[in-house]
């Protein structure tokens, strides 16, 4: 093996070894270390030294300047969990709202039992409250992340931020192109109870899968953005307030949904046949518990320096 290829091999190895360092170290030192390695003569000892340095950095991660404290990490993680829980809660809420379908049966039932409609309106209102909390928390976070990504030239973060809009555009494109074909019914029948054609059924299933994939990809990308960006504690402290509003909206909505489902089963069981209410309720219960726990942990972290 000639000297040139040995040199290139060492350079590649050195670059891999830098990924053994903790993320917080890489955020602070990776760029300048890469520059240094471009100029520094690389020997086997350099590689061993880099490896030992990575162990040392892991053992002394608390020394790294600009690191987040344990409480800041906990606070940030609590807020990420509340945000993710909100998304799954919303999917379950959307499924519950299908009790209005078919509309004629819904109208007839709610004329006889207006309390069902009132309860659903309350659940909708609480979802709106939670959404408001997400918007109030997301806006300062997005501004901070954008500012950080542009200032530090972190194109990876900007790329991750592009995932949710891209997922949204893909879903809209799917609906625009394949929407008409996905509502085709057997023999051109237009009655609401008529069966879908196999193709239409497949397209609708495809939409659900695409929706779930889009939601998961967006959640992962936003979570990574939050983890890769430098968010200081005062900002995270501030965002815990909207997170509290989200928690209130979700737990209130959960109680409302329990009342709604009880009313549906006792007063209008014909409306419960179409919607998988049990699945929605389980998802809502899980997200409600997760949100409450995360908010409690965030609150404790907020009170600590």
């Amino acid at each position: 093996m000639d000297k040139g290829s040995n040199k290139n091999k060492r350079r590649r190895l050195a670059r891999y070894l830098l990924w053994l360092y903790p993320q917080v170290w890489r955020e602070r030192y990776l760029a300048e270390m890469e520059e240094l390695l471009q100029e520094h003569p690389l020997t086997n000892w350099t590689l061993i030294d880099l490896f030992l340095g990575s162990i040392d950095a892991h053992l002394h991660v608390n020394l790294i300047p600009g690191r987040l404290t344990a409480m800041t990490y906990r606070l940030r993680n609590s807020e990420i969990v509340i945000f993710c829980a909100f998304v799954f809660y919303t999917l379950a809420w959307l499924a519950v709202r299908l009790v209005r379908d078919p509309l004629a049966a819904w109208q007839q039932a709610t004329q006889q039992h207006p309390e069902i409609k009132i309860t659903l309106n309350i659940v909708d209102g609480l979802e709106g409250l939670a959404l408001l909390g997400v918007a109030a928390g997301a806006l300062p976070l997005l501004i901070t992340i954008f500012a950080f990504a542009f200032k530090k030239k972190r194109w990876d973060i900007l790329g991750l931020l592009a995932v949710p809009p891209l997922a949204f555009i893909t879903l809209v494109g799917y609906l625009l192109v394949l929407g008409p074909a996905s509502t085709q019914k057997v023999n051109g029948n237009t009655a609401p109870e008529a069966s879908l054609t196999p193709l239409a059924f497949l397209l609708q299933m495809g939409f659900v899968i695409l929706l779930l994939a889009g939601v998961i990809a967006s959640l992962v990308s936003i979570t990574l953005c939050l983890k890769k960006s430098q968010l200081d504690k005062p900002l995270l402290d501030l965002i815990l307030l909207p997170a509290g509003i989200v928690t209130l909206g979700i737990t209130g909505g959960l109680v409302g949904t329990i009342v709604l489902i009880a009313l549906l089963y006792t007063e209008a069981p014909q409306l419960t046949s179409v919607v998988p209410l049990a699945v929605s309720l389980i998802v809502m219960l899980a997200t409600g518990l997760i949100t409450l726990t995360a908010f409690r942990q965030g609150w404790i972290a907020r009170a600590n320096p």
Partner: peptide, 15 residues
Amino acid sequence: FEPGTLYGALLRLEN
């Protein structure tokens, strides 16, 4: 000095 040692010392001095 090798880079790993240098940055181990730099982060301590900065800290």
